[in-house]
Nucleic acid binder design. Structure first.
Lengths: 188, 188
DNA sequence: TGTAGCATGTAAGCCGTTACATGATTGA
DNA sequence: TCAATCATGTAACGGCTTACATGCTACA
């Protein structure tokens, strides 16, 4: 009966659509491994809030793990209704253009205040961050091997998305190198 | 005296650091032409809220345009303190990694639910949006010509940022074309 | 024995949005 | 004269964060 949820809800629901059921804690970990690179990694508290909402809407179902005494681990799985809703969202929602918040580009814009040296340093620092990120995503990509137990290749699409990200990081790296050259060529 | 403002405040302040004074309305327009592509374009209401805050902090100053009778146009200019504060922010703040919210990548991740046809359509639609955006940014880039009245080239850095964006759009286009190929190669 | 990781949640608050409210000026 | 654009603001609220609160389990 859900009309329109925030995109992050569908994102988390989507992470539960790969066939396994996860605790809130595990869902957060999966978000950190995938969602983080092209959406957001929601805070733990939001993951639990979101799971509560999705449960109330009947899009996920909790399976209480009653082995533990006090605070039990609740594992969530997507319901048939949830899968339907996700499918509807995937085909119906109008596609928005990606939103980029790029602090480095923002700072470079004000290069006339910072000066060429500071701007070059900024870009060089960014190159470092970029290499780190790239390595993290590469590790994720490497773990997305063809699942031998699955009849269909579950990770086919996640692999494509990861490759997309890696390609993006590479093109950023190349352009930042070029920008450093251009800034350094400024006569002071 | 400002300790730490949200980044958008500094972004708007930065737009006022190019030498001319702007009304809230004009500042919004400038944000739409520049900031939009790699930060956010704040809502009109926020531009005015932000200008009020920056004024209270002494980082911008309003010059009342008393020619009009009732609702006068207030034009804002950056103060010396504002310029100092921006410079401090530019050199001190730790650089955060860019945050990307990419609804298309998010949807592609769930390609196993949507199916290859829907996924291809999604990517093709994105290609259209991308071309539009590219054209918009190209128009902005073309308007950033060397200012003959300015002793230093005011738009040198904005040009670099615009070129950066154009390069990004081009690399996205190429990768999306490749992704369409890969999705289409799926056996159904 | 104590710390890191697993595990779940509530409360307060920030940043920004949309909706609402108002009015002047310019040109078709 | 009517619509579009210029122009300025307030109110309500949404989405997400950080800070806080709690407790178990495994291992060094």
């Amino acid at each position: 009966m859900s009309q329109d949820l925030p995109t992050t809800s569908y994102a988390l629901l989507g992470l539960l659509s790969f066939g396994d059921d996860l605790s809130g804690y595990e869902l957060k970990q999966r978000a950190d491994r995938t969602l983080r690179f092209y959406w957001v990694s929601p805070a733990m508290s939001q993951v639990y809030t979101e799971l509560a909402r999705l449960t109330k809407l009947g899009l996920v179902r909790a399976r209480e793990d009653t082995t533990a005494p006090t605070r039990s681990t609740r594992r969530f799985q997507i319901t048939a209704a949830g899968r339907r809703d996700l499918q509807r969202w995937l085909s119906s929602a109008t596609v928005e253009f990606p939103a980029l918040k790029h602090p480095i580009a923002l700072r470079l814009l004000m290069g006339h205040l910072a000066g060429p040296e500071t701007s070059v340093t900024l870009l060089e620092d960014y190159l470092g961050l970029l290499a780190e990120r790239r390595a993290e995503l590469q590790a994720v990509r490497d773990s997305l091997i063809v699942d031998p137990h699955s009849p269909v290749d579950r990770f086919r699409y996640p692999r494509m998305v990861a490759d997309w990200g890696l390609d993006y990081y590479e093109s950023e790296r190349a352009m930042v190198v070029e920008l450093i050259r251009r800034v350094a060529a400024t006569d002071t």
